[in-house]
Simulated assay, not measured.
Amino acid sequence: MTSPSPRSSSPPPTGPDAGATFYHGTRADLAVGDLLAPGWTSNFADGAPLSWIYFAATLEAAIWGCELAAGEGRERIYIVEPTGDWFDDPNLTDQRFPGNPTRSYRSRAPLRIIGEVESWTPHPPEVLQAMKDSLATLKAEGKDVIID
């Protein structure tokens, strides 16, 4: 019989909605145990790699994330847990949805995949197209800035 490994003395990560179920929408094909890390470009604006990884405590926000994600892969929603502290996403909470009703967050630490949502309802095609058109308008007006 082996001894249990010693626990880290550092406090667990903290942030808004601690204890909630968190989601990340993407087209990346990943597995339970994989890490989603900062360093990728945004799905919503062209530019340099972001220094944050984004996630939400609402399935609705994750559905938008996977539906708008760049790439050709299947839309996926992963259940994730932050490995470091997390904060309100100022791109939404300060800009579009004060008070953070979307429960959208970001972290500089990776997110560990702990599961996948196998069944969810996509937005109707006309609603998805309206969102894509809105994002295209923001881009055309130079208002597609990501606060990194």
Rank of each mutant, 00 (worst) to 15 (best):
D17L: 13
D17R: 03
A18K: 07
A18Y: 13
G19E: 13
G19W: 10
G19P: 01
A20N: 14
A20K: 06
T21A: 13
T21L: 12
T21D: 13
F22A: 07
F22N: 14
F22I: 00
F22K: 07
Y23E: 03
Y23P: 10
H24R: 13
H24G: 08
H24M: 08
H24T: 02
H24D: 15
G25F: 00
G25I: 01
T26H: 03
R27M: 12
R27D: 12
R27Q: 04
R27I: 02
A28D: 15
A28C: 12
A28M: 14
A28S: 14
A28T: 15
D29H: 12
D29S: 11
L30N: 09
A31S: 15
A31E: 15
A31H: 14
A31T: 13
A31G: 07
A31I: 04
A31M: 14
V32C: 12
V32M: 10
V32I: 14
G33L: 12
G33V: 05
D34N: 08
D34I: 01
D34R: 05
D34L: 04
D34Q: 06
L35M: 12
L35Y: 11
L35E: 14
L36T: 08
L36G: 06
L36R: 06
L36N: 05
L36S: 09
A37D: 13
A37F: 06
A37Q: 11
A37P: 04
P38H: 10
P38W: 12
P38I: 00
P38Y: 08
G39K: 08
G39I: 05
G39T: 02
W40T: 15
W40C: 08
T41M: 11
T41F: 13
T41Y: 10
T41I: 14
S42Q: 02
S42K: 00
S42T: 00
S42I: 03
N43Q: 05
N43G: 07
N43T: 08
F44G: 03
F44V: 12
F44C: 11
A45K: 01
A45P: 06
D46T: 10
D46L: 10
D46F: 03
G47D: 08
P49E: 09
P49G: 05
P49F: 02
P49D: 09
P49K: 01
L50H: 11
S51V: 03
S51H: 14
S51N: 14
W52Y: 15
W52N: 09
W52C: 15
I53R: 07
I53A: 02
I53G: 13
I53Y: 08
I53W: 06
I53T: 15
I53H: 02
Y54T: 05
Y54C: 05
F55Y: 05
F55Q: 07
A56K: 04
A56S: 15
A56V: 05
A56H: 09
A56D: 14
A57C: 01
A57R: 10
A57N: 08
T58R: 13
T58I: 02
L59S: 03
L59G: 03
L59K: 03
E60M: 02
E60N: 04
A61I: 02
A61S: 14
A61K: 10
A61D: 13
A62C: 03
A62Y: 01
I63N: 06
I63C: 01
I63L: 02
I63D: 12
W64M: 14
W64H: 15
G65E: 07
C66K: 01
C66A: 05
C66H: 00
E67A: 09
E67H: 02
L68T: 01
L68I: 05
